[in-house]
Write a protein that binds this DNA or RNA. Structure first.
Lengths: 284, 284
DNA sequence: AATGAAATGAAAAATTCTTGACAGAACGCA
DNA sequence: TGCGTTCTGTCAAGAATTTTTCATTTCATT
């Protein structure tokens, strides 16, 4: 068990100040512990003795002992960053899953043409076009996520409800040149196909995020972004879809970086006023 | 220019003992600088003053100054492994994004303890416990996705609304032994912390999915699953969070595979009847 | 070989760091 | 409210570390 995990595990059994110190250490791992206890303590806004008591609770003799152990661990980590050769004979299911997810991401990259990706990003970055985003049963969450973040970048973003009438109503507001992003993966849904067809008739540009099998809506789409989603499990994995969404958003942001900063600042302001987020001062 | 490069560059202009020290440092980079100058000097078989003179030639004020700079550099290196110098020959932004996402997934794996993961999955698989899932502004979509899929596996799953009163109402139904899954990543939200605290008081088991910075809610959580989310961009990436969610779901399904099949069949039936999905016949 | 400049390490001095003791503060409980 | 427990920061002593000083060695040059 690594020191980091040990500290994480004992987090609940610590006192307030100790937990404050531990949280700081963990969130700046392992940087924080490589310096002197004085620096660490002041950075975490606790006293040095508190840090000593913390590491003693973790089973170390003192700060020096703790630091020596940590140094050894960091050294090991840097020497072999995650890819230890010749082992991993019995993979944990979590690791097997991650390996497949990584493979999917890489295959997705090979599959998607860069011009297609860029074109889709350019469409989304055009402030003159409204953007409507629609997902299916499994991809509704992705649509919502994309809408939330895209709204930070630019105005005029709608997340089409998955209520039976939601997408039909969205068609009402659709004008020529608007962008409709449709997520539709295996177990392709009739909604998506109809939406694509009708939106295309109204002159909208259709961006379709689908799986390798290609949604039937592909026939109406102007830009198709296929993702690898197959897993050696009962379900598919939508990790690649989320990655694609975030990559798109990053590209869109690149297109309109100047506006974004202003919008971000205003957003911060709103959040500060509504006190949704905790204040800079740590909990108490 | 990194410290390592600087040292390598100035190698020829050093004296014998200094070069001996520098060679030792470079061949054990960056471990060497984590310890005291005394240890380093004896390991390199030179005197401590020689090391001081070496780092002063490199432009540092003294050993302490040098060590602080090196720590900062190592910290940067560990935070963004894909930012390793000397590679990346003009990748497409999409590829750069994917590379970082993959790195994040791998680092997340190293960070999460398998027992922690398994324990969380076991909790979620226990049909005797209700499960409430709650996300923040950015992670609400993930919470919804998890709830959607978890409901396929087992009954008794609630997705807590992010309306101001939603999570408070969810507390009403909470019984001892129930499971509360909380997503809370950077820009930690007060909601999550309060929910964790109150739910813990009511005897619920708290599973916290957070970032490496550790949500303040960690103090109340019984199982902490930290994900790497940092990206070399304006935003963080929640890809690893989704991967973790899906990996968890896969594990949960493994625990109750028999029940799932039955539920899946009934689900298919329901969908067929409501005609949400298109029929097996291709489109048109 | 002799000389002087540069380099090196030993030891002392100065600084910084760690940790134990103590007292005030916070908290739970009756 | 009052009491006892636990927690936490301040302080100071002791330990360790860094840095300066200085004597010795090495090496090139005359």
């Amino acid at each position: 068990m690594t020191i980091e995990q040990r500290m994480r595990a004992s987090l609940p059994s610590l006192t307030r100040a100790e937990r404050q110190a531990a949280t700081h250490i963990l969130s700046h791992f392992p940087m924080s512990a490589l310096g002197s206890i004085t620096m660490l303590a002041s950075a975490a806004e606790v006293s040095a003795p508190t840090v000593v008591r913390l590491v003693q609770k973790l089973g170390f003799k003192g700060y020096a002992d703790y630091q020596a152990a940590l140094r050894a661990e960091v050294g090991r980590l840097l020497a072999a960053p995650s890819a230890l050769p010749g082992q991993a004979p019995r993979l944990h299911p979590m690791q097997a899953f991650a390996a497949q997810a990584i493979a999917n991401i890489q295959m997705t990259l090979d599959q998607i043409a860069a011009p297609e990706f860029d074109a889709a990003a350019a469409l989304l970055a055009d402030p003159g076009r409204h953007v409507a985003i629609m997902g299916g049963r499994l991809t509704h969450a992705h649509a919502g996520y994309m809408a939330t973040l895209l709204r930070v970048i630019r105005p005029g973003v709608t997340c089409v409800s998955d209520h039976p009438t939601g997408w039909q109503q969205a068609l009402l507001d659709l004008r020529t040149g608007d962008v409709v992003v449709i997520f539709d993966i295996r177990r392709y849904e009739a909604n998506a196909i109809h939406m694509a067809e009708l939106a295309a008739r109204q002159g909208a540009r259709i961006v379709l995020v689908t799986d390798h099998g290609l949604s039937p809506a592909a026939g109406y789409a102007h830009h198709i972004l296929p993702c690898r989603i197959t897993m050696p499990a009962a379900w598919d994995s939508t990790v690649t879809i989320l990655m694609l969404v975030e990559a798109l958003l990053g590209r869109v942001q690149g297109h309109c970086a100047d506006q974004v900063q202003d919008r971000l600042n205003r957003l911060e302001d709103v959040f500060a006023k509504t006190r949704i987020f905790r204040t800079p001062t740590p909990e108490r």
